[in-house]
Design a binder for these strands. Sequence first.
DNA 1: CTGAATCCTTAGGGATACTG
DNA 2: CAGTATCCCTAAGGATTCAG
Lengths: 140, 140
Amino acid sequence: MKPRGGHISDSCRPISEILSRIGDKWTSLIITRLTEGPLRFNELKRQVHGISQKVLTATLRGLERDGFIERRVEPTVPPAVEYSLTPFGRELAEPLMALTRFALVNSQRMEAARQAYDERNGTPFTEASKPRRPMRLGMN
Amino acid sequence: MKPRGGHISDSCRPISEILSRIGDKWTSLIITRLTEGPLRFNELKRQVHGISQKVLTATLRGLERDGFIERRVEPTVPPAVEYSLTPFGRELAEPLMALTRFALVNSQRMEAARQAYDERNGTPFTEASKPRRPMRLGMN
DNA sequence: CTGAATCCTTAGGGATACTG
DNA sequence: CAGTATCCCTAAGGATTCAG
């Protein structure tokens, strides 16, 4: 922080940025898979259950752009593309895996907290939450 | 597949879940502020620059529900509400802060990687990215 | 096999106004 | 002060189709 005030938003930007990056529902799972070794596109797609090809592609592009993964194209036919973590990506993986571990270890604790909360107060939030549930669930 | 395979999706659910929770652009910033002590609603709103009051409320509710923060109402008039991390929240804060630190330390490295990438390939992604930018930017 | 392009739906978030 | 309640819009993500 500086003289006075602290310019919090300055230091916040990169935080929000990277947290959005890894918080996007798929990135962490992809990184996790890749920590165990390089994978080809469809291997990755199979291991990350439920991700669509479009989103996988987009996510991989983003990670490549940020320098976390490397994309190697084997010029065969049909082409074989291999994705792997860069050293930078492995650095990211470390704190990320720590968080991931936390999630795994404490998932039931969170669930319990939620149920307790929902018991004290009305279940979901607004209380006026309709019996909704039409929602298209993504099978692919 | 069956016996073999490891049930990846089972272990993935809590990961995606918590990562979405903390990856939602504001949560990490809120937790970060709260690691330094309890704060009242508007103090928090002021410290987390740019967050709207609606989103702050919703985020705090979610964190309370998951057991990460506690909400204490001082029955004065006007009411004073204080938010603080629970022990569970402090546990979460640890790996979260590690990631946060990573983001801070490496933000320029990411930026550099991005510029390098954009130089090799066309700037943003689709190449056909319109000169867009009308987008309402949120001032509050 | 590895994507790119399109279309469509939904959830997240922002602005604003109002209340105990 | 600390929220609720609306309205609205965009970006993320899914389904599907096409191609090198």
